[in-house]
Structures are given as structure tokens and as C-alpha cells.
Design a protein around this nucleic acid. Structure first.
Length: 136
DNA sequence: GCCAACGTTGGC
DNA sequence: GCCAACGTTGGC
């Protein structure tokens, strides 16, 4: 099983909306590297849900509920794909970007190295470290 | 194939 | 509001 991180501006699509809707198709990704990551997702993979810009914190854990499929919001025949995500649980405490940066276990975190990419791989030990930071 | 111009993202 | 990083576009 692989681990990932997806970003969303909470003003555009928030964790709260995500949980209220009990999941969503993760559409709108228009970057080839991010698309490649989406293509590698498998049902059951766990995904950190990060609020960018206004909050800058990991706020919850989602699960890949379906494999990558053509993004219905993109032009037919385009290369863009989406996966189905569903919420697993909110973190007891959101983990701010500053806390990610401050933790030596997370110095290799892809988010910190490539902050603009919206779909990023996470190593299992990094995933565990973030969950630990998110415990109350 | 190179590179300047430009647009977008996201942290500060 | 600014700016760094980075992707895309288009002229040459």
C-alpha cells in the first residue's frame, strides 16, 4: 500500500465539505507530475489531506476508493485523470506546515521539497510521523 | 531545441 | 502584497 498527500485550498474545497459529502472524485489536476501520482494510486492507499494557503496544515486522512479514471471535468480525450477519495478520519489536531518543517523525521517530505505539486507521494514512516503529530 | 515571457501556486 | 518556484507557450 502506498501513501500520498493531496492539497486543497479550503476556500475551494475543504475537509469539512469532503466529509459532509462522504468523499469526492479528485478532479481538476492539470499537472503531469501530479497526474502520474494519481495514476499510481490504488484502492486502499491512504492519503493525507492538506489545506494550503489560508490554513497550511494537514487536517485529515482519506482513502483511495477507486483507481484512476479519466477526469470527467476535462475534455474528452485529454490525458487528465481523477481518483475517488473518501474520508477516513480527521486528525485530532491539524498538523501545521511549521510542525512538518520542524520535525526531523519529515525533512525529506515531498511537500516540503516541491511545495507547488498538488498530489505528492509520502513514505510510510513519514505518514506515521504525521499521524503521530496529529494525535491529541 | 532554446529561451524569454507569462501565468499560477503557495509560502511568507 | 510580494516573490520564489515552476510549468507552459510561442517566437526564433
Amino acid at each position: 500500500m502506498n501513501h500520498w498527500l493531496v492539497k486543497s485550498e479550503p476556500e475551494a474545497y475543504s475537509w469539512d465539505t469532503f466529509t459532509q459529502e462522504k468523499g469526492t472524485a479528485w478532479t481538476g489536476v492539470r499537472n503531469y507530475q501530479a497526474r502520474n501520482n494519481l495514476n499510481q494510486m490504488q484502492p486502499g492507499d491512504l492519503v493525507l489531506f492538506y489545506h494550503s494557503v489560508s490554513e497550511k496544515a494537514v487536517v485529515g486522512v482519506a482513502e483511495v476508493a477507486g483507481p484512476a479514471a479519466p477526469d470527467a471535468t476535462a475534455e474528452a480525450g485529454s490525458p487528465w485523470v481523477a481518483v475517488q477519495l473518501r474520508p477516513v478520519q480527521a486528525l485530532a489536531r491539524p498538523v501545521p506546515l511549521a510542525a512538518l518543517k520542524a520535525d526531523t523525521r519529515l525533512h525529506q517530505l515531498a511537500l516540503l521539497r516541491q511545495s507547488r505539486l498538488s498530489v505528492l507521494p509520502v513514505r510510510p514512516e513519514e505518514f506515521d510521523a504525521v499521524l503521530e503529530l496529529g494525535q491529541s
